[in-house]
């Protein structure tokens, strides 16, 4: 079983993604979910769930924000709404939300997703014992570690196989603060980048939203060339993140992953096929952004 989970940026795109053989759509609203391509209204969420279910697809909703008191007070009605409209699962990163889900008897399967903190099988199993039906792995995990995690976890885990990866989340408005300091106007765009000192080739995306400021790694993740290895170690829930890859290009990339999935299941995956499809993937990837395999190929001893 391989599951492809993809973010969606509109009802239209959700329809297109469902048609590509993506298994699960990942959506939400940004008062409760982190770094989504679009913050959907409840009507839109309802509509997307209906569209997905008509095609026997699933919808998972992001409830993985770090909640302060104001949000924790409004999250119960939100969870009840999601249960009513038939969301198949939610992601949660704040233990307070798990507590509420259980004390209010809300019947929604949850996937544990505390972003950078989810780095070991034992950690994931802790949440599995407390009801989690899955977990989302941190991006800073290497193949060798994934292999070990795959053998030890008691619930399936998601691996991000495509898209931008957040490496810094501040509650402060860091870009706004900078422009306030310089007394100049903030550029009217969310497409800003920072580069490291003496590394002008780097281009870390940075933007602000109601959850604060988010910085993304200079290269987006692409594990397309390594999907067979993920299958081998039993990590077959693959997440695609479209926060910076928009419109039809993103749908095409999702289609390529869905195709890869089918070929792997049919045992028809070859190096040649992979390279050809990966080439197509790169054609659809935004030209101003670069790709690499993230931490996948690093040696655990490299990062201390």
């Amino acid at each position: 079983m391989i599951e492809i989970i993809a973010t969606a940026e509109s009802v239209e795109q959700a329809k297109a993604l469902v048609a590509t053989d993506v298994d699960t759509l990942y959506i939400g609203e940004d008062a409760f979910g982190l770094r989504l391509p679009k913050s959907f209204s409840r009507n839109e969420i309802t509509e997307i769930i209906k569209i997905a279910h008509e095609q026997n697809k699933q919808v998972s909703v992001a409830v993985n924000a770090i909640m302060h008191n104001d949000r924790i007070k409004t999250v119960v009605p939100y969870l009840q709404f999601l249960q009513e409209v038939g969301a198949d699962s939610v992601t949660i990163g704040d233990p307070g939300v798990i507590h509420l889900l259980q004390t209010h008897g809300i019947n929604l399967p949850f996937i544990y997703d505390a972003q950078t903190l989810v780095t070991s099988a034992k950690h994931i199993n802790f949440w599995a014992k407390r009801g989690a039906v899955g977990a989302v792995l941190a991006r800073e995990i290497m193949y060798e570690e994934l292999k070990s995690i795959g053998t030890k976890v008691t619930v399936p885990v998601e691996v991000q196989v495509y898209g931008a990866t957040c490496i810094h989340h501040s509650k402060r408005p860091l870009v706004e603060n900078y422009y306030n300091y310089t007394k100049e106007h903030k550029p009217n765009t969310n497409a800003l980048y920072i580069s490291e000192p003496k590394k002008p080739e780097t281009h870390y995306s940075i933007y602000e939203d109601i959850n604060g400021t988010h910085v993304f790694n200079t290269n987006d993740i692409n594990l397309f060339p390594h999907l067979d290895k993920l299958v081998e170690i039993g990590l077959t829930r693959w997440k695609l993140d479209g926060v910076f890859t928009r419109g039809k290009d993103y749908v095409e990339i999702a289609r390529l992953f869905a195709k890869a999935k089918q070929m792997l299941l049919d045992d028809k995956w070859t190096q040649e096929q992979m390279e050809q499809l990966n080439e197509q993937l790169m054609q659809h990837h935004p030209k101003e952004r670069t790709l690499d395999e993230g931490f996948f190929l690093k040696d655990p001893s490299e990062v201390q």
């Binding site: 950078t116 903190l117 800073e140 810094h168 989340h169 501040s170 790694n217 200079t218 990062v303």
Partner: peptide
């Protein structure tokens, strides 16, 4: 950052 929610160092300095 929110403590724990920053891996700048991992990505920039290993």
């Amino acid at each position: 950052s929110y403590s724990g929610r920053c891996t700048l160092s991992n990505h920039m300095s290993n």
